[in-house]
């Protein structure tokens, strides 16, 4: 039965991962929809703060994630890219062709 369970996991769709912060000044979340992620690694190259990496996740899919040592510090790492006034779109979002990366600010 565990063998079946495992197989079902591999074909199951991915998940939505939100990494970020909420404080008095608002919320900041980077969202990766792993179902849309094709593990191309363009976000890894595009991010000026080296936030991303492509790994095999717990369910055996290759997906982009926010690195372990970075995911607790999004507010400061992503701060410089946060759009205010006339700022360009986030490099990670612009680089992601399948549109798997979005943000909440």
């Amino acid at each position: 039965m565990f063998g079946n369970w495992w197989k079902r996991l591999i074909v199951a769709p991915g998940y939505i991962a939100n990494y970020g912060y909420a404080d008095g000044s608002g919320t900041y979340y980077i969202t990766i929809t792993t179902e849309k992620c094709n593990a191309c690694g363009e976000c890894v190259k595009a991010c000026p703060a080296q936030v991303f990496e492509v790994i095999e996740d717990d369910y055996g899919d290759n997906v982009a994630i926010v690195k372990d040592d970075k995911k607790k510090n999004i507010k400061y790492l992503c701060g410089p890219c946060k759009p205010t006034a006339n700022r360009p779109p986030l490099p990670c979002m612009a680089a992601c062709k399948p549109g798997a990366i979005s943000h909440s600010w």
Partner: peptide
């Protein structure tokens, strides 16, 4: 998560 305990969505925060 779904009925098998597989993650569908998660949200994690900065260290605070």
């Amino acid at each position: 998560c779904d009925e098998r305990g597989k993650v569908v969505q998660f949200l994690m925060n900065d260290k605070c």
